[in-house]
């Protein structure tokens, strides 16, 4: 899971202060592992240092000062790259893919394109593994099958999600 890109993606949807950012992250992506407040601020500090976010304002609503952050043009360029670059096929990929799909829908990007690129990347890996099975000993074949079945599970999730993009988009825009 790329926490910096996910936070950057949430800031692209709208500027937020740190606590608001943590709440938005936890609501969509942190069911099992909510972000620690320290992690939010440390990540925002790195994103600001790298020029991907800027402080867009400070306010106080009956408590301490709250700093609001907004994404910069460089931040959007970095996000564009993140969305367009498929992840390397590996186990436990789902959280980062899910984050890409949700944020692509919220930012008006083509979420189907994200899924298509990932499907193609997975199939390239599966083709290579299938070719390696040809003429291999059974123990090697079963090892390759293990990887193939896991990649197939990812792909089934991709198809399942692709078929529900419209509905997910509507739910997210409520």
């Amino acid at each position: 899971m790329s926490v910096p890109h996910t936070l950057l993606g949430l800031l692209e949807v709208q500027p937020r202060h740190g606590y608001d950012l943590k709440r938005a992250y936890d609501a969509h992506f942190g069911h099992d592992r909510p972000l620690k407040p320290g992690q939010v601020y440390a990540t925002l500090g790195r994103l600001e240092r790298d020029g991907f976010v800027v402080v867009s304002g400070t306010d106080r609503e009956g408590g301490p000062d709250r700093t609001t952050y907004a994404v910069t043009a460089d931040g959007v360029t970095d996000l564009d790259h993140w969305f367009s670059e498929p992840e390397g096929p590996s186990a436990y990929l789902q959280p980062v893919l899910f984050a890409k799909v949700v944020l692509a829908l919220q930012s008006g990007r083509d979420a189907a394109q994200v899924l298509d690129a990932q499907r193609a990347e997975h199939l390239v890996a599966m083709r290579s593994l299938t070719a390696l099975k040809h003429g291999a000993d059974l123990d090697r074949v079963l090892g390759l099958d293990f990887a193939l079945f896991h990649l197939e599970a990812d792909l089934r999730w991709l198809e399942h999600t692709a078929a529900r993009l419209d509905r997910l988009g509507k739910e997210l825009s409520r």
């Binding site: 690129a117 199939l123 599966m126 083709r127 593994l129 197939e152």
Partner: peptide, 27 residues
């Protein structure tokens, strides 16, 4: 096919969505 492991036997795949090609990858 709808089975990815079977599609992996192909040299190339094209994805059809709503009656037209959605994406194509050349091996």
């Amino acid at each position: 096919t709808h089975e990815p492991r079977i599609a992996a036997y192909a040299d190339r795949e094209v994805v059809i969505r709503d009656g037209a090609l959605a994406a194509a990858v050349v091996a």
